[in-house]
Design a binder for these strands. Structure first.
Lengths: 120, 120
DNA sequence: CTCCTTAGTATACAAATTGATACTATACCA
DNA sequence: TGGTATAGTATCAATTTGTATACTAAGGAG
């Protein structure tokens, strides 16, 4: 999944599959949610932990790093103690918001057990 | 990922996260691609194998079965020899096409020169 | 001097997902 | 009798993903 830029050569079928490319960027287990919560402004590391208590620190770090690598997310470090790091969508990341919002709409509509109180 | 209906109880944070629900349905490694190729009509098992040569038979079966379980895909078995099975989007599955097509557009736009240029 | 904070890393391990290969059924064709 | 075709299963190995726990830095509070 993470080897987009390394070695497909001519054998891979990803070249002609834009849908798969997109899912590769936003399809990680937590990426969609993280992206979703960054739409309405930057978030700190511990804010994500509060929003999604079931994601572990390691996974949160890994997923944010991948989003950063892909140029989707900007990581702003404030050299303070205690440390402060803010994550926000880059200009490139903003181009994903229509997809995220459409996915939000679809999920809201068809998720049966919706006591969904999250509004952006 | 597959335990949506079984046991989150009150601890899970998925309840209020429509984006994650949607990604749970279409975010499997191959689901988006399969869905994408079903938009323009039903496809047979071996057609998918030809379209995505890098998906194994087992994965193809598993992903199609999950899509079927979720009511996204209809599986029509023709009792012939050699067997013939056709997969197509259900009416419910059709509701996903806007998302898939948006993902296709995004992927098409940014997959070649990822992170290089942002043009609208 | 020790504890608290944040935003992580490091390590070890467990679980889930994915892949490779071999195998099945059954009618037709020669 | 053997080969072809399709749509799968079965089995095991490898990879990926996730969890748990301990640890770091560095300033401020007590």
């Amino acid at each position: 999944m993470r080897d987009r830029e390394s070695g497909y050569g001519s054998t891979g079928d990803r070249e002609g599959c834009p849908v798969e490319y997109t899912l590769d960027v936003i399809g990680g287990k937590w990426k969609g949610v993280l992206l979703y919560h960054m739409i309405d402004g930057s978030k700190r590391f511990n804010e994500f932990k509060r929003i999604c208590p079931s994601i572990s620190q390691r996974m949160l770090t890994l997923q944010l790093r991948e989003l950063e690598e892909d140029g989707i997310v900007h990581r702003e470090v404030y050299h303070q103690v205690p440390p402060k790091v803010e994550y926000s969508l880059t200009e490139f990341g903003q181009t994903l918001t229509p997809i995220i919002l459409l996915m939000k709409e679809w999920g809201k509509k068809y998720q049966q057990n919706s006591q969904c109180s999250i509004e952006s």
